[in-house]
Design a binder for these strands. Structure first.
Length: 385
RNA sequence: GGACGGGUGGGUGAGUGGCUAAAACCAGCAGACUGUAAAUCUGCCGCUCCUUGCGGGCUACGAAGGUUCGAAUCCUUCCCCGUCCA
């Protein structure tokens, strides 16, 4: 994997415009990863993802380990072949499940003991195991196992999670390097990223970043944010970290964000982001448009003959009306999720295209304030006409 | 003509003397969703008034009477619906 700047520092913010080259194609940065936890972006086929221009997607170590099992995927030729996705894949480590499945797991220094949400069976996920699974999956980018905690969190808890995350990162790095030493091609096939933790404490964030820098990862992520804290805090913590990260390596802010927040993160020097919001909100009838959010189930759209977003060029907006989408949701039809997801993912990927362009023209700040204006705080809502 | 069973809020359907403006589910209305245990979850859902409160008033469990301090619940008559017998 290699990372380079296509256009260096044309934008007065800290935004970077670059290019990430992976074994499965080049990804223009900054970019957004649609989330495909279980080797599928819910409601989208790989054909649709290609049509939408997705250059990379995210899949999940924990979920694919439980089902269908990483050994099976390895046997079937790796995740790319298994799911017939020729472009890049990043796999999350299962660190987020440490957070989201908190009732089903126990953390020790050794690793995380999960009780499977599928059949109740017990599994131990260690930093080494998470790395091993991701090697079996054959993703282009693998994340280290980290301990993601809620925010706000008490300082002692944040310190403990940070300490453990660093220790785990070191073990994952060692494991990866040992494997790479045995298999000369491995380092060409997969890149392992470290994850900065530290909750909402600036000094802990900096400490975490410094510790990870010593481990020399080809890319760095900022984790444990956008899990409850205000957007300003997310930005503050991100800024603390990006200030310390090497400029020649990609920075990944995990799990963000809302449409109007994305440009802010990019302005702070973030190159990559992922979020379930466009896909999940779509399934829940929340559509993102250039004019704000459209809650398409609302009665006001029953006779609305306009497309979801008059300014959108996606195949759904070119063909279907709001009235039809609303009907599909009301009727509980699967097609509702398919069309809505297609549109929302298009919207996010289009935001990224606009952001990349804005960086090149040096006006990302304008783009950002426009987005915030359209998506004002509170229950945002698109105008009626 | 007779014997049973049944008629409950927009729908299905609990409830068989007070804790019932009436369970639950559906429909309807609105909202949430940030490295996905999510095609999920939450709130509202008879009308009305205000000092918006575990507040007041009114109306409501086929209809009309009655028993009772109190009835969707018990009694009487009537009207419908279903099954069976003639």
């Amino acid at each position: 994997m290699s990372f380079s700047f296509a256009v260096a520092k044309a934008d007065p913010t800290g935004a970077r415009r670059g290019r990430l080259t992976t074994p499965h194609g080049t990804v223009e940065t900054p970019f957004f990863l649609p989330v495909g936890t279980q080797a599928t972006v819910k409601a989208l086929t790989q054909e649709a993802l290609e049509e939408l221009g997705a250059e990379i997607i995210l899949a999940n170590t924990y979920h694919l380990y439980l089902r269908p099992g990483h050994e099976l995927v390895r046997k079937l030729g790796g995740l790319h072949q298994f799911m017939s996705w020729p472009r890049a894949i990043l796999t999350d480590s299962g660190g987020y499940q440490v957070f989201s499945l908190s009732e089903l797991r126990k953390i020790t220094d050794e690793g995380v003991r999960f009780r499977s949400h599928l059949d109740g069976s017990e599994h131990l996920l260690t930093p080494e195991k998470a790395a091993e699974i991701q090697l079996a999956l054959g993703s282009d980018i693998a994340m280290v196992l980290d301990e993601c905690i809620e925010t706000p969190a008490p300082r002692d808890k944040a310190e403990a999670a940070l300490k453990r995350t660093t220790a785990w990162a070191a073990r994952a790095r060692n494991y990866f390097k040992e494997c790479a030493a045995r298999d000369g091609n491995l380092a060409e096939c997969q890149s392992q990223f470290g994850i900065v933790q530290g909750a909402t404490f600036g000094d802990l964030r900096r400490e975490s970043a410094r510790q990870l820098l010593d481990l020399d990862f080809p890319g760095y992520a900022v984790g444990g944010l956008a899990v409850g804290e205000p957007h300003e805090i997310t930005c503050e913590m991100t800024a603390e970290v990006t200030a310390l990260l090497p400029k020649d390596r990609p920075r990944y802010l995990m799990g963000v964000g809302r449409p109007e927040q994305i440009a802010d993160y990019v302005a702070l020097g973030i190159d990559m982001m992922d979020c379930v919001l466009p896909t999940r909100a779509a399934r829940h009838a929340c559509l993102y448009t250039s004019e704000g959010r459209v809650l398409i189930k609302n009665a006001r759209y029953a006779q609305d003959q306009r497309p979801i977003d008059p300014n959108c060029t996606c195949s759904v907006c070119r063909r279907y009306t709001r009235a039809y989408l609303r009907h599909l949701f009301a009727a509980g039809e699967l097609t509702a999720a398919i069309l809505a997801t297609h549109h929302n993912v298009h919207f996010y990927l289009d935001i990224m295209r606009q952001i990349r362009e804005a960086i090149e023209f040096g006006n990302l700040a304008n783009f950002s304030s426009e987005m915030h204006a359209r998506y004002t705080a509170g229950p945002a809502r698109a105008p009626d006409s």
